[in-house]
């Protein structure tokens, strides 16, 4: 399943009002650790193909959205369950740990 580009306009409908588990990667293009995180998120999207939603928020373009979820450090990964924050990870986090948290 493809990774959704999340922003102010679609965050509510894609994440907050979603009944599915959603994993969201808050990143910025210039951030070196974010570039290491990105393929891990892509791999999760591939592996869980459609069973959960996977999205990314470019914090440079959506700073207010990031701050509204208290994101002050990137990469931050938030797992939403029924639209609510279930778990949050700061910094490069390995796939096994994220997969465990998604369950």
């Amino acid at each position: 399943m493809s990774v959704i580009n999340l922003n102010r306009e679609n965050f509510e409908s894609e994440v907050v009002k979603s009944n599915q588990t959603v994993i969201v990667d808050f990143y910025a293009t210039w951030c070196a650790p974010c570039r290491m995180m990105s393929p891990i998120i892509d791999a999760i999207a591939e592996e869980l193909n459609g069973t959960i939603k996977v999205g990314k928020v470019d914090c440079d373009e959506n700073q207010e959205l990031a701050i509204s979820y208290s994101v002050m450090s990137i990469p931050t990964i938030i797992i939403f369950k029924e639209g609510k924050v279930a778990k949050q990870f700061v910094g490069v986090t390995d796939k096994t740990e994220l997969m465990e948290a998604i369950k």
Binding site: C31, Q63, M72
Partner: peptide, 16 residues
């Protein structure tokens, strides 16, 4: 407070 005001990377997080 890691990720809530404590940071280890000015280049990554400075813009917040």
């Amino acid at each position: 407070f890691e990720g809530k005001g404590i940071s280890y990377c000015a280049i990554c997080d400075g813009f917040f």
